[in-house]
């Protein structure tokens, strides 16, 4: 029920992000979505790609620090209230959000919210028992490419 996310350390220097995206594109790695969290001095780029092992190897070869970690993808209707419903469920279970970001799947009107929680397994159980659609990675990749 968990999804692999590739995080990359980026120093805030002009051109680094462009360089990284070009590298993945040249090697046929399709970025399903990305999110950049940054400070004045550095940033963390979080990527969802299907070939995460290949992407990680490519980036490391070019001197980037990259790390794989788990996130949870939840599909919600792209309308107000979707996020707050999830936050309410997690709050009730005593789980907190480390970070989150969102994207829209091309083929539908639904949004996908990506979460990192402090207690991932507990979070999945809580979301599923509340009847939410926690996406499998295969399904996410298919629909994103859909």
């Amino acid at each position: 029920m968990k999804l692999k996310q590739l995080s990359v350390f980026l120093e805030n220097k002009p051109g680094r992000l462009r360089e990284l995206c070009a590298l993945l594109a040249e090697n046929g790695v399709n970025i399903i979505t990305l999110s950049l969290a940054d400070t004045e001095q550095f940033g963390i780029l979080r990527l969802i790609v299907k070939d995460y092992d290949k992407a990680k190897a490519l980036l490391e070869e070019k001197g980037f620090v990259a790390k794989l970690s788990d996130v949870i993808a939840v599909e919600v209707k792209d309308e107000p209230g979707g996020l707050s419903e999830i936050l309410k469920i997690e709050e009730a279970s005593g789980i907190s959000v480390e970070y989150m970001y969102a994207f829209t799947i091309k083929s539908g009107e639904n949004a996908v919210l990506l979460f990192c929680f402090d207690e991932m397994d507990k979070a999945v159980t809580a979301l599923q028992s509340a009847g939410l659609n926690v996406l499998e990675s295969v399904e996410l990749y298919q629909r994103a490419e859909g």
């Binding site: 996310q5 350390f9 963390i44 979080r46 620090v65 990259a66 790390k67 480390e98 970070y99 990192c116």
Partner: peptide, 14 residues
């Protein structure tokens, strides 16, 4: 320098 060991996807941890 950042290393694979010290890097984290979480801004809070960094």
């Amino acid at each position: 320098e950042m290393t694979e060991k010290s890097f984290s996807s979480s801004m809070k941890e960094l």
